[in-house]
Nucleic acid binder design. Structure first.
Length: 433
RNA sequence: CGGGGAGUGGCGCAGUCUGGUAGCGCACCCGGCUGGGGGCCGGGCGGUCGCAGGUUCAAAUCCUGUCUCCCCGACCA
């Protein structure tokens, strides 16, 4: 039951002056998030619903490949970080407790999960295994930016795979590629899976999931059947990059023109190998009693970035236009007329029926003008807007407006019962991107 | 970390150059009208001007220090 009159949706006519990125402006204007400090953001009720939509999709797909959800702490002893050599990373928050013991705020959870793997995995019989959690990450970013896109604290789904050898790791990695592909497809985002630099993480391979959008921090190179991040493309012998007269770069692959697009990284997957299991002593005994290091993989996805990328990709001049899978509500019901009027009574009845039918709806029952209500509905960006006013009473129909296309579809009968309404809404949603 | 910009009511801004005790729009509260795209009229509430120190009879305004935030770049395990 979500009546706007009893909700917290602080929409704004003007964006904060210091906001630059589309997602930053719109997410604040639509009442989804508010800032507390540099790189520190609060998710307000409607924004958190969207975030949780992403979380639910991710959870389903990681569960489907056999992931086991758990929860590890953010506050951790410094020791494992010292052992893996990551204690001196500048982005790592370090602190002491009252006794002077060294602690860190985890920026990711390889140390923690490997620490526990060392404790609890003893035999080849315990493998393979996929563990994951949704947990806050803390990073002392030199420069947080663009609203929720680059923050110092954010929730991440990170999963970790454990195998007895490299072949097993390849299998677990392939399972994650499949899960990540399905996750991204389900969100409705436009995305690319690109090979990425393995950097200092070890040379076994990595991919990034990139969502093209104007606020993107990275650049990807795109062609027919080809997508790579810039670093990888530069190392590809078939790819050529020449500067033209204006100092701009022209990319080609086998002579075919490639496009350069800004994108944000919404997920990444790494083959870690024994990078963490060796220093932390995560080993198992094989059939012959030999002690061997566990082969690991690490797989991250940032729901907040998925949300921001969706805003960036589908926004228009009036506000957000969510993909159905991420929308805070499927339906934004607008009631016209004051409380006590017949049209308002009809809206109330419709709202009750939507709830009864299990439709996720936000109901604008405020005593506000039409313009304000429609403007807020456009801003918030729910895929379907249903309007009940005098016209509805005359025609006997609820007006249906599609946010993405601004299409006014044939009305639904006001007299429809709850199951019929739910079915109609569901069918409409399925026809939408 | 380098470069640039900004801190005045919840949001957007003016006032600072040329010191005289804070103003506008929106939002909010009350009353009335209106009711299909941020509507209208009237009446209100709310800010020791980021913080600290200094100069002065007097500081949002001048001086010094400091904190915070934003943008570009570097960075981004």
């Amino acid at each position: 039951m979500t009546r706007l009159s009893e909700y917290l949706l602080p929409t704004l006519k003007q964006a904060p002056a210091d906001a630059e990125a589309i997602s930053h402006k719109l997410m604040v204007r639509a009442g989804l998030v508010r800032q507390m400090g540099a790189g520190m953001w609060t998710w307000l009720p409607a924004g958190w619903r969207v975030h949780q939509k992403v979380v639910a999709i991710v959870r389903e797909e990681i569960d489907a490949i056999g992931g086991r959800e758990m929860l590890m702490p953010v506050l951790q002893p410094a020791d494992p970080w010292r052992k893996t050599g990551r204690l001196q990373i500048e982005e790592l928050f370090k602190l002491e407790d009252r006794k002077g013991a060294e602690l860190v705020l985890a920026m990711t959870h390889e140390e923690a999960v490997t620490f526990h793997a060392a404790q609890t995995i003893d035999s080849y019989r315990d493998l393979p295994l996929i563990l994951y959690h949704f947990q806050v990450k803390e990073r002392d970013e030199p420069r947080p930016r663009a609203g929720v896109l680059r923050t110092r604290e954010f929730v991440m789904k990170d999963s970790y795979s454990f195998d007895r050898d490299q072949a097993g790791l390849e299998e677990r990695y392939a399972l994650h590629v499949g899960a990540y592909d399905r996750i991204m497809l389900r969100t409705g985002l436009r995305f690319y899976r690109v090979e990425s630099d393995v950097g200092m993480m070890g040379g076994l391979g990595a991919h990034e999931y990139m969502a093209p959008c104007p606020a993107g921090e990275d650049e990807i190179v795109l062609g027919e059947g080809y997508a790579a991040n810039v670093e990888v493309a530069r190392g590809d012998s078939r790819v050529q990059c020449v500067a033209d007269g204006d100092g701009r770069e022209r990319w080609t692959r086998d002579g075919q023109a490639l496009a350069l697009e800004p994108a944000i990284e919404i997920g990444n997957i790494f083959k870690l190998g024994t990078r963490y299991s060796e220093p932390l002593g995560a080993t198992y005994l094989d059939e012959h009693g030999a002690e061997l290091p566990i082969w690991m993989g690490s797989y991250g996805i940032g729901p907040a970035r998925v949300v921001a990328a969706a805003v960036e990709q589908f926004a228009d001049e009036d506000g957000i236009s969510w993909p159905v899978a991420l929308a805070p509500f499927a339906v934004h019901l607008v009631a016209l007329g004051r409380a006590g009027t017949p049209e308002r009574d009809a809206a109330e009845l419709l709202y009750a029926k939507l709830n009864e039918g299990g439709v996720e709806a936000i109901y604008d029952d405020r005593d506000a003008g039409v313009g304000e209500k429609f403007a807020d509905a456009d801003l918030l960006g729910c895929p379907l807007r249903l309007t009940v006013g005098r016209r509805s009473l005359e025609s006997g129909e609820i007006e249906v407006h599609l946010r993405r296309t601004r299409e006014q579809t044939g009305g639904l009968p006001l007299s429809a019962d709850a199951p019929t309404l739910a079915k109609a809404v569901d069918e409409l949603c399925q026809s939408l991107p």
